[in-house]
Design a protein around this nucleic acid. Structure first.
Lengths: 217, 217
DNA sequence: TAATAGTTTTAGCCAAGGCTAAACTTTATA
DNA sequence: TATAAAGTTTAGCCTTGGCTAAAACTATTA
């Protein structure tokens, strides 16, 4: 069994990957000093879970990726389970799942997955890896990359920042919602979006974290 | 925040307590060497969570007890929650709750408690401590202490041993079930019990782990 | 009551996972 | 292209929570 620390490193490298994950980014995501990240990356390299080119970056081996995706699967199943049973707000799910994911046994993971009907996405729209680490190719589009006046459906919102999620929620942006970009402000000022019965302005940084698909699938 | 190890030590001392908890018993319950238990008991004494009289035994301070009961509360709420939502068998609950209890935040604990209607007992019949460590006085009787031919209701079964729990379940012994001791075998050979529509023999060691109350409250 | 068995503690070791300070690479800039 | 800035690694330290072996204490029994 991987320790909590190892699981968190693997998951973080996966999230920052797939290639050349910088020590600093890893350290920042995990709230540790860069030197600590270097040391752990070296240990994981010893164990065959990470490939590390000094001064260049880290990436997961296939075994490392398998284990990272196991953590991601548990995380996303827990988010879905908590959302379904307790209806927590979408902005509370991430942190709770983060705490519980390391204690979820394979057996309970399976029971929960079955209970939920083996869902393909969590409440933020993120795809849930299969029990063996299969991850469907994610073909969603970045909202900020879409053209004007296309009919779009939101597929994914970020999960980490509760403030941002609360704001998105309040403005009616979450998976399943239909919208259309009506105009772009100059100089990276953001985009203007019309929803079912409102229209709002979304900054570029936020639009870079929201994924959509074309409405006619 | 207490570490997982500290939480487990506190919980175990509480379970073995209230007084003069032997190093060996503690070590055995936690699957560590006696020397490791001694060392941790000393550290917890430093921290003011445990009182330790060398060569005599350990016990919890009131703060130690408060923290131990917080773990017990999380454990029992989780058992209840898993049982209610996923209907796991009673024999699977303990281990899963053991894994998850350390990752349950105070906020989620509260949400779960409310969702369940602030239950007073878990699926094994064990009382659930309140959010501030209040524990109602447990007045249940040991099955093995009861007299013949009294009308009894099972209130608590043990939670740790899945084999035993499966056996009890199969023979219809779980909280809420009515029964009566019809006779005692000689020389500690156990007791003969009649249930609603069966009768079985229960060994003394098992009868020492089942609690009951008189049927007329 | 003296020897022995059982329990507990001490001493000394180890690995994991943190940290800071200093050294080393790489990248950017003058 | 030399030098400064930024990022990374190394070195050395610390705490936690394990372990074993040996010493010390307690309890039992001859």
């Amino acid at each position: 069994m991987d320790s909590v620390a190892v699981e968190n490193y693997l998951k973080s490298i996966w999230e920052l990957g797939p290639d050349d994950v910088a020590t600093q980014d890893l350290a920042q995501l995990l709230n540790v000093a860069p030197a600590s990240a270097t040391k752990m990356v070296q240990r994981l390299t010893e164990r065959g879970l990470v490939k590390h080119i000094p001064y260049k970056g880290a990436s997961l081996t296939s075994e490392g990726r398998r284990r990272a995706l196991s953590v991601v699967r548990r995380h996303r199943l827990l988010e879905t389970f908590l959302s379904q049973t307790l209806d927590l707000g979408r902005e509370q799910l991430h942190e709770e799942a983060e705490n519980l994911e390391h204690g979820l046994s394979t057996e309970l993971e399976t029971v929960i997955a079955n209970y939920l009907g083996n869902p393909e996405r969590d409440p933020h729209g993120h795809p849930i890896p299969g029990p063996n680490g299969e991850l469907p190719i994610d073909e969603d589009l970045l909202l900020s990359d879409c053209s004007l006046n296309q009919y779009l459906v939101v597929t994914q919102v970020p999960d980490r920042d509760p403030e941002l999620l609360t704001w998105l929620e309040k403005n009616g942006i979450f998976p399943g919602i239909k919208l259309k970009i009506v105009s772009r402000d100059d100089f990276g000022g953001g985009i203007n979006v019309s929803l079912e019965d409102s229209s709002i302005q979304i900054s570029t940084s936020v639009a870079n974290e929201v994924y959509v698909k074309l409405e006619n699938d």
